[in-house]
C-alpha cells in the first residue's frame, strides 16, 4: 500500500472529526484554546500510534471473541502512561484537560482504528495509519481551538490580539457546538468547490 496515501488520508479524506464524526467529546470539551486542542490531540496521537502498534503485533495471538476487551486493555494501559507522564511534566495542561485525559480510553477514534485497521494490517502500515489519523485529529482540534480562542478571547495561542472583551460565548459550552457546526459547513463548501 502507498504509505503516503495511508498517512495523509487522516487529514482530509478520512478526517476523524470533520468527516467521520468520531471523537467528538474531547473535540468539543477541551477546545477553549488552541494550545489545549493541540495538547489533547498529541496525547491522543500517542495513544493511537502505540495502541495501533501493539494491536498489530498481537493480532494473531488474540482469539476473535475477546478481541474488543483485549484492545480496550491495551488502549487503557497507554492512556494510564499518558496520564502519569502529563501529570508529572505538564501539570498545567493536565489540569486544563481534566476528565478528558482518562476518557481517551473511550475515544471512538482509537478503538475504531484498532478494530478497523490495526487488527488487519502490518505493523508498519498500522504505525503510519495511527500517526496520520492522530495528527489529522490534532489538526482538527487545534483549528477548532484557534477559532474559539480567537473569537472568544481575542487571542491566538495565548497572544492577546485585541484588548478588552471578545465574544465570550465562543469559549462557553454553546460556542463549542456553534463553532464546530459552522466549521463543518465550511468544510462542506470546500468539498463542493473541489469536487
Amino acid at each position: 500500500m502507498n504509505q503516503w496515501k495511508n498517512f495523509s488520508k487522516g487529514f482530509i479524506k478520512e478526517n476523524a472529526v470533520f468527516v467521520l464524526f468520531l471523537g467528538l467529546c474531547p473535540t468539543l470539551g477541551v477546545t477553549t484554546s488552541a494550545i489545549n486542542g493541540l495538547g489533547m490531540g498529541l496525547a491522543t496521537t500517542f495513544v493511537l500510534v502505540m495502541s495501533n502498534l501493539v494491536v498489530s503485533l498481537v493480532k494473531n495471538l488474540i482469539p476473535d471473541k475477546v478481541r474488543i476487551p483485549a484492545f480496550i486493555v491495551i488502549i487503557a494501559s497507554f492512556v494510564t502512561v499518558v496520564e502519569l507522564v502529563m501529570r508529572g511534566y505538564v501539570p498545567g495542561l493536565f489540569d486544563a484537560l481534566g476528565l478528558f485525559i482518562p476518557l481517551i480510553v473511550v475515544n471512538c477514534v482509537v478503538l475504531g482504528r484498532a478494530e478497523a485497521f490495526a487488527s488487519k494490517n502490518t505493523i508498519w502500515s498500522s504505525l503510519v495509519d495511527g500517526a496520520g489519523m492522530g495528527l489529522g485529529f490534532t489538526m482538527a482540534l487545534t483549528v477548532l481551538g484557534a477559532v474559539r480562542e480567537l473569537l472568544g478571547s481575542g487571542a491566538f495561542f495565548g497572544m492577546k490580539l485585541i484588548s478588552g472583551d471578545a465574544m465570550l460565548l465562543f469559549i462557553l459550552p454553546p460556542g463549542a457546538f456553534l463553532a464546530l457546526g459552522y466549521l463543518l459547513v465550511l468544510a462542506n463548501m470546500i468539498k463542493e468547490k473541489t469536487s
Binding site: F177, L180, G181, V185
Partner: peptide, 8 residues
C-alpha cells in the same frame, strides 16, 4: 452541521 448548530 445543522444538528450541531441546534445543539449550540
Amino acid at each position: 452541521p445543522i444538528a450541531f448548530i441546534v445543539a449550540g
